[in-house]
Amino acid sequence: MRRMLDLIYTSALVASAGALVTIAVLVFAQIGGRILDRFLLAMGREVVGFQVPSLAEIGGFLFVGAAFLALPATLRAAGHVRVTMLAQALPGAAARAVTIIVLAAGLGLAAFAAWHSGVQAQDSWAFNSVSFGMVRVPLWIPQGVMTLGLILFAVALADELVAALRGATPAFREAEAARSIDDGGH
């Protein structure tokens, strides 16, 4: 179970990184097209006018994918920002209780977010909503990826909550502790 969950979080992170690399490759191709045209123009030849169709829209979709798919891994790496003053000030048992409350609240909100993101993707599917630019992209695809990211986020929060309820230290608490030692924060 543990290995499977970790595999899921890592796969989502790899997909997120893949989206970032795709953005870089597409944009670089677009810039390369302009450089080629400059070169051809300087040689007195006709320009090719190469461009990545709908680059701006597709870039936006890829950014959505990259951001939402990294949610679980970011949570576990303590990448998400929160105020840790109380957690640090309280004695062990009370701090654990607060961690459980925070994880439960986060899980509830993530479930809310995932549910309504799913409804939105389903509506876009039912409405046949499509993008506006040159390439006709059905909106349920990027919205579906967004929903998947939020579902995995909820799973990761549930995972951490179960760990905390069992009396273990959730991964994000470990990462927070490790970071504050590294940086000599306290």
Binding site: I23, G59, L62, F63, V64
Partner: peptide, 17 residues
Amino acid sequence: AVFGTKAWAALNIWDLT
């Protein structure tokens, strides 16, 4: 529904790339 729409629109932005 407002949450879904705003969350989507918040990140579906080319300049953010």
